[in-house]
């Protein structure tokens, strides 16, 4: 079994990045695992699990030419992770409020104190330049109830940050 690497590429967004990078990996004999790619503030960020019978330097070489032409920075790490290691989230947290410093730090700090394990976090800034609105969605696993989490984060909500918890109960059929 070929070892796994975490490949991260970041650069100015443009059409065709995913196609060129994944084609280079495919042509180089690599397999892809879990991946997350998205546009953030006009940049495009890719994180891919890549399996390849070589080392981190060789994986970097597979995409080096295309990355350079596309203006992407490349980072590769050997990882011990494998596929099929998902932890199912049981709680989602929606947070929004007038944008200000410290929302993520305060919310995630309070969640960490009660052992909330963040599995996915996405945030965005809506509104406009005059009245920016910070919006964040977290999914994770936590042994605490919604009521316990509400009590833990209550001091933050008093500062005008809206926080809504919802249990995630997958329907398995």
């Amino acid at each position: 079994m070929a070892p796994w690497f975490m490949l991260a590429l970041v650069g100015r967004d443009q059409a065709g990045i995913v196609a060129r990078i994944t084609q280079a990996l495919y042509q180089g004999g690599a397999n892809l695992g879990e991946a997350s790619m998205l546009r953030l503030g006009g940049n495009f960020a890719m994180m891919l699990m890549v399996s390849h019978a070589s080392d981190a330097r060789a994986v970097e070489q597979l995409v080096a030419r295309d990355a350079q032409e596309l203006g992407l920075t490349v980072h590769v790490d050997a990882i011990t992770g494998q596929l099929h290691r998902h932890i199912q989230p049981n709680m989602s947290v929606s947070v929004y409020g007038a944008d200000r410093s410290g929302i993520v730090a305060r919310v995630t700090g309070a969640l960490a104190k009660v052992g909330f394990h963040i599995l996915n976090l996405e945030s965005d800034v809506g509104g406009n330049d005059q009245q920016p609105l910070y919006i964040m969605h977290i999914e994770g696993h936590c042994a605490s109830s919604v009521e316990q989490l509400q009590a833990t984060l209550e001091p933050i909500t008093r500062d005008g940050i809206q926080i809504h918890f919802e249990t995630i109960e997958p329907m398995v059929g």
């Binding site: 929004y96 919006i135 809504h164 329907m171 059929g173």
Partner: peptide
């Protein structure tokens, strides 16, 4: 939800045929 999921199976549909991006969740329901 469970009934709709199971009835889909009768028409050869899996929930994979109806996936919604997780990022859509960014805006609270």
């Amino acid at each position: 939800r469970a009934i709709q999921h199971e009835l889909d199976h009768l028409d050869g549909l899996l929930f994979l045929d109806r996936l919604v991006s997780r990022r859509t969740d960014l805006f609270p329901r």
